[in-house]
Design a protein around this nucleic acid. Structure first.
Length: 669
DNA sequence: CTGGGCATCT
DNA sequence: AGATGCC
């Protein structure tokens, strides 16, 4: 034990230059050696994320056992359900057997999860820009700088939350003050997430990403744990299998097993050379480092996504007609999301999975092609039907490159993906700056509280990077990021608007949604199974096949089958749904009429996202009212320019996405 | 009866 | 374009 501690001690004494494979890039923005010997990394992990989002959307679900279902799988469930034996990734059959009262909600449509996910990330970014997403419900954050600023001025404090150790934490807090402060910052950030978004989650505080992630799940749910350097070997030793090590997946574990490496300790002791022969030297080193709890990877700001995709899986798809319909369905939702993002995709990729008795999940094939500029423009400018109509033949060409439609085929998945996302070329630098300024200012949480996670020394912001200087709120961020990688910053501004991060409050867009519902009946005519116009655009062979096999019936009976799926396009992929579940239609209407209902409770009827957009002065005012438990005087949404969301071309969706993002108002048009 | 995304590396 | 990994 003692020797282990000394080992670690020896290792982390040399600041910032100890790592075997230290990257040569100048990343002074990411690590600081001036006053702390270590980075301080936090890993945030939301509790049963999808279930929490569903419980916010429908609070009556809070007290019942709830499972979120995708196809035949419970992808996650709330803690009421867990008490009754339901677990993640359990089949619906097993879950119902364990817990017959289990209430199921369909979770194939990720829209709401994605939106809430970005709200969490953005909230964290508003405190410190070094935030990296991992999936929808986890975020890494490098809070080294925030810790340093507090370290300089505050007296020593004890740890907040759990410490991964049996030792006396009061003593340890004096030895590791940066971690103690980090634990306080983490607690405050978790509280911010809870108070502003209504979500609970766990956090792990440690000196690198690997350890932060490993330690964050020690106490669940809604708790946090700090890992001390002296306990690194202890936590690594607690991992029962290699698979528990983040970064070692199924395949890697198998290959290691073949070398006789089956435990973390095995890997730690295994000689580098044979490992390098199997995995290559860089990977071999990384693997051995992981076994030691060493991880030099930096927290890389994620920014806006690099691709947007939509997919559906099914038991069997074997006709070209079905494929066309599915691709149209996927393209329709994807084009709308792409439009809301604001960037222009340069590449379209189609991915399929063929059925095979053995290795069902292994075989994925894809083909991609450039998207002609004129089509990309239609997406950007909201010409949804035109865009989908022109993308469809493109996608079908890609499909033909993989599948001989003359022979029998059996697909189990189709995925459509936009990538190579290009920011609008016309945006001038001044535009972007004003935009950034706007966002940073408004997302900057508070300068009013002294216990804010974000530095307490705003007056002298020398070197400070976290919202320290209100008069020039974005400068610090810009400097920091550009040190590292200018390209990364641009997405951040996109991220702010991406995927409806900023949605409009309940008062505004309801009108819009009603208007769109009215227009939906005429939409159905356009979204027929196979539009003659579309047919013309399709490759010849597909045309032939369709004409011979289906034309006489389908083309003439176009409105028989199609109205339901298209009018209610959000529920799209539930056509073949089986199990009973909470009614999708009702759910959607509820969410429209009262978005973030729990948020409304917490915030006195003010949508948290709206709150984030308000000027700091107004935020301050409202917050003081809330602290005194006074009702909010007026809806701040009146401040927002909600008027001009004119979607000219009728959207294919009968339901509004209320995707007002503020960027729109800055676009030339 | 194993989902629907995303990213990175090669 | 595929493989792999993460949630």
């Amino acid at each position: 034990m003692e020797s282990e501690a000394e080992e670690d001690d020896a290792e982390w004494k040399t600041p910032c230059s100890k790592s075997p494979v230290f990257s040569p890039s100048l990343e002074s923005g990411n690590t600081t050696c001036s006053s702390t010997p270590h980075k301080v990394i936090v890993h945030f992990d939301m509790d049963c994320f999808y279930a929490q989002v569903e419980m916010i959307r429908n609070p009556t679900l809070r007290h019942v056992p709830l499972g979120v279902q995708q196809k035949y799988i419970i992808v996650t469930c709330n803690y009421v359900a867990r008490e009754r034996g339901v677990t993640k990734l359990m089949s619906v059959t097993d879950a119902k057997e364990k817990c017959p009262e289990l209430v199921l909600v369909k979770g194939e449509d990720l829209t709401h999860y994605r939106e809430m996910s970005y709200k969490v990330t953005e909230l964290l970014v508003s405190y410190c820009p070094l935030v990296e997403r991992l999936g929808f419900d986890e975020n890494f954050m490098d809070i080294t700088e925030m810790v340093e600023r507090r370290l300089q001025q505050s007296k020593t404090c004890s740890f907040k939350g759990h410490v991964y150790s049996n030792n006396v934490s009061e003593v340890k807090a004096r030895i590791y003050p940066w971690l103690a402060i980090g634990s306080h910052i983490a607690a405050e950030l978790r509280e911010a997430i809870h108070s502003k978004l209504g979500l609970t989650g766990c956090a792990g505080i440690a000196t690198n990403k690997l350890l932060a992630k490993l330690v964050s799940g020690t106490f669940k749910p809604n708790q946090q744990t700090t890992l001390l350097p002296e306990d690194v070997s202890s936590i690594m030793g607690s991992l029962t299998t290699l698979r528990k090590v983040p970064g070692i997946g199924h395949q890697t574990a198998k290959r290691l097993q073949a070398l006789g490496v089956s435990s973390v300790k095995d890997l730690e002791l295994f000689p580098l050379d044979p490992l390098a022969r199997e995995f290559g030297e860089p990977s071999a080193r990384r693997l051995k480092n992981l076994a030691l709890g060493t991880d030099d990877s930096t927290v890389t700001p994620t920014g806006a996504p690099q691709s947007l995709s939509d997919e559906d899986s099914f038991k069997k798809m074997s006709s070209t007609k079905e494929v066309i319909e599915k691709i149209q369905e996927l393209l329709t939702t994807l084009v709308e999301r792409m439009h809301n993002d604001g960037r222009q995709p340069q590449t379209l990729r189609l991915t399929i999975r063929r059925y095979s008795a053995t290795n069902k999940w292994l075989s994925r094939e894809s083909r991609q092609s450039p998207i002609p500029n004129h089509i990309g423009q239609k997406i950007v400018h909201g010409k949804f039907d035109d865009a989908v109509g022109q993308l469809k033949p493109l996608a079908m060409k890609l499909f033909q490159k993989m599948v001989d439609t003359n022979k029998a085929f059996h697909l189990t998945l189709i995925n459509v993906c936009f990538s190579n996302l290009q920011t609008r070329a016309s945006a001038s630098a001044s535009d972007k700056n004003s935009l950034m300024s706007f966002f940073k200012q408004n997302s900057s949480p508070e300068k009013t509280k002294t216990d804010s996670p974000c530095d307490q020394s705003d007056s002298n912001s020398g070197g400070g990077r976290c919202n320290a200087d209100e008069s020039n709120p974005h400068s610090s961020v810009t400097q920091q990021i550009s040190k590292k990688e200018t390209a990364n910053f641009q997405p951040v501004s996109n991220l702010t608007k991406t995927e409806n991060s900023f949605t409009v409050s309940s008062t505004g867009p309801n009108i819009e949604s009603q208007q769109e519902e009215i227009s939906s009946p005429e939409i159905s005519g356009l979204s027929t199974n196979i539009d003659p116009e579309v047919l013309k655009c399709l490759p010849q062979e597909i045309q032939k096949e369709l004409m011979s096999s289906h034309a006489s019936t389908d083309l003439l009976h176009k409105n028989i089958n199609n109205t339901l799926p298209e009018v209610d396009s959000q529920k799209k992929s539930t056509l073949n749904s089986l199990g009973p579940s909470v009614s999708g239609d009702l759910k959607i209407k509820n969410s429209l009429s009262s978005p973030g209902s729990s948020g409304a409770k917490i915030f006195g009827n003010v949508d948290p996202t709206v709150f984030a957009e308000l000027p700091p002065e107004l935020q301050k005012e409202l917050m003081s009212e809330w602290r005194q438990d006074k009702p909010v005087s007026k809806a701040p949404s009146s401040k927002k320019p909600v008027g001009n969301v004119t979607r000219k071309d009728k959207k294919t969706s009968g339901k509004s996405r209320q995707s007002n993002n503020l960027l729109k108002y800055f676009k030339p048009q």
